[in-house]
Simulated scan of single mutants.
Amino acid sequence: MNALPRTPAPHRPAAGPPTPGARLALEGATLGRPGHPALHGVSLEVPAGQLLTVVGPSGCGKSTLLRTFAGLLAPLGGRATADGEPVTGPAADRALVFQEDALLPWRTLRGNVELPLAVQKVTRTQRRAEAARWLGRVGLGEWAGQLPHRVSGGQRQRAQLARALAGAPRAVLMDEPFGALDVQTRAGMQDLLVEVLRDTRATVVFVTHDVDEALFLGDRVALLGEGALLGTREVPHPRDRTAREAAATRALRREVLGALTTG
């Protein structure tokens, strides 16, 4: 089973023990809001360090699944767990990234990236250094002092990614984060995500409506439809841009599209 390379989280002491990604699971779970379930009987495990992509038609429950893992929605039945413990609410070690950049408009890009570190009570000097390092990693070093409305949508998404990863979360939950971007910017953000995740140990659940994006980024892809988890599939060539037309990738794309059409 494929997993992203793992190294210690950046702002923890190098001499300390490495922190693994979180193991996420749903056990016979019914997901949604009271009186309005979206998914029924979902059993799904995301091993530590894996990147799981989730695809399905609009309204099938993709965002509901993600928000359940984030602790924003309690299961209506069954269990949602992180490392075997029930998910009872949001936690600092599970970062959520939205399609809208969700940056605080009154804070500079640097101030936004520092925010999760401030919540963790990292010293001002250290969080300033970590924010600068992460903004540099996503190509925004020279824009650190700008307010969000002064930069492009792609740059705001880069800043949101830096903010999510600066706090060294054990799980990153991404809700169609590149869906509003143009094709070229979207491909660049996909490549950037792959690059920066090489230096983390985080487990990633990435919701998308784009099958090609799912098959490029994911170690596995989960298929949702008709109020249920239709199944999961191993991706033959994860994060390999040159494998788009490989026979195994093309076969899986046809299978996924067929499952979503009939599901």
Rank of each mutant, 00 (worst) to 15 (best):
L192S: 04
P236N: 11
G188E: 11
H149D: 14
Q50L: 11
R94H: 10
W106V: 12
R6K: 12
L161R: 04
P37V: 14
A131W: 00
G41C: 02
V97R: 12
P37K: 14
R150Y: 07
A131H: 00
S43L: 10
R23N: 06
G61Q: 07
G167V: 05
V122A: 01
A3N: 09
E245A: 06
F206Q: 13
R79C: 02
E195H: 12
G154R: 06
L66R: 13
L31P: 07
R201T: 13
S43A: 15
R107V: 08
G167T: 06
L229A: 00
V196W: 00
E142I: 13
G56I: 07
E226P: 00
N112V: 07
R233E: 15
V256N: 12
P20W: 11
V194D: 05
R198E: 15
E114C: 01
E142H: 15
E226W: 04
T7H: 12
P177Y: 11
V151S: 01
V122S: 01
T262V: 11
P20E: 07
A25I: 08
M174A: 07
A14P: 05
R158Q: 02
G225A: 07
A144W: 01
N2S: 12
R137M: 07
G263I: 02
M189P: 14
D182R: 03
R201N: 13
W106Y: 11
R239H: 05
L173Y: 09
V46T: 04
G28N: 05
V138P: 02
V183A: 15
G225L: 03
L117V: 01
G56S: 03
L76R: 04
R250W: 10
D212C: 02
D93P: 06
R201Q: 13
A29S: 04
V55G: 03
P57E: 11
P10V: 00
V183L: 14
L230S: 04
T242N: 14
P105Q: 08
V97G: 09
P105I: 04
P57I: 05
L224E: 00
R156I: 01
L223Y: 01
A164G: 14
A38Q: 14
R198T: 14
E255Y: 15
R156Y: 03
A132D: 15
V54R: 10
G231Y: 02
L217C: 01
A132T: 11
L76A: 02
T88G: 15
R67Q: 14
E176M: 07
E195F: 09
D219A: 10
L103C: 08
R12A: 15
